[in-house]
């Protein structure tokens, strides 16, 4: 089924309810779907579990969701940054749960969810604090840790362009988590600069096939 073309960022995120698990794309600000996050803020959903590489920067986007205590748990690889003051405060106050995951394991756990994989053994993290309590196995003399997929109710993603079938292309390193997050959520919501008619994207260049995309909103060119 072709994706719904939403009329605004608010319309795109209207279905997100309290207690949802939300994958949010972006690495730092590159690929962060800022307008969708702002709309999520406005829509009032709370008690969220958020998956992102970081835990918000400065006073925008994810950082504000955390500031307003709308995020009960964050799954990320790198929460502490020079400008992560809202996360730092919430964490020190014991008002947000942190699940810290090595970046490659985070990506693979998201990929696994979208690919129907029930778990995988990875060498990353073996013998470290982040593997404590997890099943391990020695395979061909090397230590591995069992990691589980990260499924989500929603993904919020920023891409460069969509066609009306939901096929996506991204821009440079803003691609980062977008393609895998689109596969791992029950509902993938994508903000793009523009939506073009079918045929407007060369099939050879499609990065995320439209099958994964549920809602698209065009917000005009940022570049």
């Amino acid at each position: 089924m072709a994706p719904r073309i939403a009329t605004s960022a608010a319309d795109a995120v209207a279905q997100i309810t309290d207690g949802s698990t939300v994958l949010i794309g972006g690495f730092g600000n590159a690929g962060q779907p800022m307008e969708l996050i702002d709309a999520l803020m406005q829509c009032g959903a709370t008690d969220l579990t958020v998956v992102n590489n970081n835990a918000g920067q400065a006073d925008a986007g994810l950082a504000l969701l955390i500031k307003e205590r709308r995020v009960k748990k964050i799954i990320c690889s790198f929460p502490r940054q020079s400008d992560s003051w809202h996360f730092d405060e919430a964490y020190r106050a014991g008002e947000i749960e942190l699940e810290l995951v090595p970046q490659g394991n985070l990506a693979e756990r998201i990929r696994a969810a979208g690919a129907g994989i029930g778990g995988f053994f990875t060498p990353t993290g073996y013998g470290t604090l982040l593997a404590e309590g997890k099943e391990t196995r020695i395979i061909d003399g090397r230590g591995y840790v069992l990691e589980s997929p990260i499924h989500a109710d929603f993904a919020l993603i920023k891409a460069l362009r969509a066609d009306t079938h939901g096929n996506l292309v991204y821009r440079k390193t803003a691609r980062n988590f977008g393609p895998i997050m689109a596969t791992a959520a029950a509902q993938a919501i994508v903000q793009v600069d523009e939506v073009v008619p079918v045929g407007g994207i060369d099939p050879e260049n499609v990065i995320t096939p439209g099958i994964y995309v549920d809602t698209v909103v065009a917000l005009g060119g940022s570049n």
């Binding site: 790198f78 502490r80 942190l98 090595p102 970046q103 993290g125």
Partner: peptide, 10 residues
């Protein structure tokens, strides 16, 4: 200290 690992282990 707030832990942050990023890609270090990978």
């Amino acid at each position: 200290a707030i832990p942050a690992v990023g890609g270090a282990m990978d």
